[in-house]
Design a protein around this nucleic acid. Sequence first.
DNA 1: TTGTAAGCGTTATCAT
DNA 2: ATGATAACGCTTACAA
Lengths: 345, 345
Amino acid sequence: MKKTTIKDVASHAGVSAAAVSYVLNGKAHKVSEDTIQKIHDSVKALNYIPNISARGLAKNTSELVSIIIPQTESRKQLMLENPFYAEIISAIEAVVRDYGYHAILAGVDEGVSYLDISVSRNLDGAIIMGVYPERLYEECKKVNIPIVLIDSYIHDETFANVGIDDEHGGYLATSHLIAKGHRNIALVTGTIRRDGVVEKRFLGYKRALQENGLFYHPDYVFEDSVSYEHGRVTGRLIAERHPDITAVFATADMVAFGLIRGIHEAGKRVPDDLSVIGFDDISMAHMFLPPLTTVKQQISYKGETAARLLMEQIVGERPRRGAEVPRILIPLELVERDTVRLLNG
Amino acid sequence: MKKTTIKDVASHAGVSAAAVSYVLNGKAHKVSEDTIQKIHDSVKALNYIPNISARGLAKNTSELVSIIIPQTESRKQLMLENPFYAEIISAIEAVVRDYGYHAILAGVDEGVSYLDISVSRNLDGAIIMGVYPERLYEECKKVNIPIVLIDSYIHDETFANVGIDDEHGGYLATSHLIAKGHRNIALVTGTIRRDGVVEKRFLGYKRALQENGLFYHPDYVFEDSVSYEHGRVTGRLIAERHPDITAVFATADMVAFGLIRGIHEAGKRVPDDLSVIGFDDISMAHMFLPPLTTVKQQISYKGETAARLLMEQIVGERPRRGAEVPRILIPLELVERDTVRLLNG
DNA sequence: TTGTAAGCGTTATCAT
DNA sequence: ATGATAACGCTTACAA
């Protein structure tokens, strides 16, 4: 079936295409009540649906935003298996849809420039999670569309940013352990890269130690990938070879799950023999057994906030010239569950 | 900066826009080697990136496919928190990207017709997961684009379909329990709707019972939502009030996690007091404690298969007229872990 | 208040 | 082999 176009509507209503366009775009101030009515009737009658490509061509828009998330290294898949990203994406998609826009999922392949997809698709905005080679950000500046970064410590006034106070989070977790009487506290984490979120958490860990008069012990930090497997191996290791350690702070819940598993495999128990605290509070954290004590970041809210920020820039009247490039911090909260015990001693 | 268009390239290369278009679309059979070279040079030099909207307008395509997944009822978010969907989407996105297309995430809101977004965006195809009101499928038939359904038992030759043999899966799980010596086996599940996947699993459950000379016991089926909470409540219930039941088959891993939690809360242990088997083998299943015995479906492979099927229909030469509408079944496999015990006696 | 017409960037038809 | 040129469906000056 041939699709109905704006012209069909126009002739059906006995007006010009321009009139139809005006009405449909709220620029009806120049159209009489009468024709407005006729047009609406015709739209209904013909079941007219505007063609976004055509509109985009004329207006240089797409009503599309892209969500960029990291890919797994091995297979080239999106890291949606990490529940953290999945949660945040649902939140983003929901608000984007609310605005009548759509979100495209975009893995950034090694070779191809993000710029390409952005200009070829005429994207109206983008949300970027994770950290990427400098190149990407440079490209982003070139395409002049609103962009909001999630969890980035990039020092750049160009991009809006929503994140959490990771240093504070690390501090919170470690302080909690200390308050429970622990003094030999390990840190299990993904790669600590300069200006990355885990570096900040690491810094918070050290500050908590220091403020409580505890020594920072470099061999208490086990740095590798942020993965279940790393946690598992390290859990076994700690349980078997580090009898002095009584608690461990994992910089991600997934790692904490692995830790607990590894500790069990070594024949010890959580929290009886070893306490574990996580970070993120992904929804699995409260389902896990034992339920995980962790630093809760409001993942959905974070995604929602980022998306709103983006959409406001896109549809907003405000010229967004230089002005305020917001950097929003979502509050953190420690949630106590069953993986940390009180050390009496 | 003004974007470079095909005309810019054309004049830079000293040829017509048509020639450029030919070359860029592989229809170069009518162009001399010489100009081909010149055009490629100009493309490089000017950093030309085609405008997909314009192409779409001319060719009536979009190089876009939509992934439709169910939404949570409460908040109107995508069910990405269900790791099952997250996994499958990563897989789909990867192959779609491989084809140079993009995937848009689409929640289907109550009010709005899916048709709208499909025609307004000129979608080239769609993958639909979950089951929807009949209306949606009718709409899909109207827009004449390739569509592949995942896990649907819709009786309709119009749509390609990839799924699993759910009946067999239910049979597999239940048989395993029986083989381990269990005779009073509960079923904990989401709503059993006609022609839904859980109905099939339920049927498999009954067949296994029957083939082994066991009675089907209606009050052993606990039907509600497919959620952790339902599992948890039911776990408590079974542990406290049904001493006769020794094993339970959960039709989704998430439910199984809840069950195990509930059982623990009732002061019993898995698998010592009660055995639990799940379904899906989401990646969390092997991370859980205790690691979950479950029926594994190859989630990624399923998504990949669906996506390939779709993309082949889209880019394929074959007229896809009536012909073969494939219904692909991904093999199932039981994976034994630690939540089912051998019942001696 | 309404209509005309010129783009927007491609593709495709048809001459040349 | 190559180039005009007319679509494609919509928006938006500009006229009327």
